[in-house]
Amino acid sequence: MDDPTQALIDRISADAAPVRPFRMGRGLALAGLAFVVTIIATLFLLGARHGLMSGEFSVYFVVVNGLLLVLGLSCVTTVVAMASPHVGTGHEGPKWAIAMAGVLPAAGVLAASAPDGVGLLHVEGIHCMYMGLAASVLIAAALFVWLRRGAPVSPKLAGLYLGIGSGALGSVANGMACADDSIAHLGIWHMAPVVIGALVGRYVISRWLRW
């Protein structure tokens, strides 16, 4: 061993303070807590949608929010795992969830642009998009903190999944308050936070995930 390397080893091993190992469970608990707090805050600030407490849901509400929930959980679980690097980890799960949820905007655009559709732009939709984005902030912050403390070796992919996961769960939280159950509304405006989150995560947040 050359002298500088041995000197470095001597120096850093003398600094071996105890550390708390990363565990998936703690990361998931942190993200889960952020999600629960977001839902409670949404219900408190915007109020629960009609029928939420009595279990009356439309089919579109269940399908869209179910897909968003699966997409969000898949991405969040992967982001938490990415904080602890390991050769041999594929991170393939979210790809299938993204492909699955990708059907929704297509259905939304088709329904909105149909002759009897509501059109692609309407004020309530834009309002819902903002609410979904606002609801994703706390979840995104929790995941960002976790990744910054960790060692993600694929920062671009980690940023992308962070944006998609927090956007999807933020949209689910907003869905608890939104009364519009049309596929045109849900497919476009409840998916918009996911798309925006993906772009911000991939091109902005990932820059701060390098170490």
């Binding site: 470095l8 850093i12 990363f22 690097p85 390991h86 403390r149």
Partner: peptide, 14 residues
């Protein structure tokens, strides 16, 4: 790499 190992040693899952 050794410095990175030191800085990120908590990310190793035992």
């Amino acid at each position: 790499v050794l410095l990175s190992v030191h800085a990120k040693r908590s990310t190793y899952d035992p």
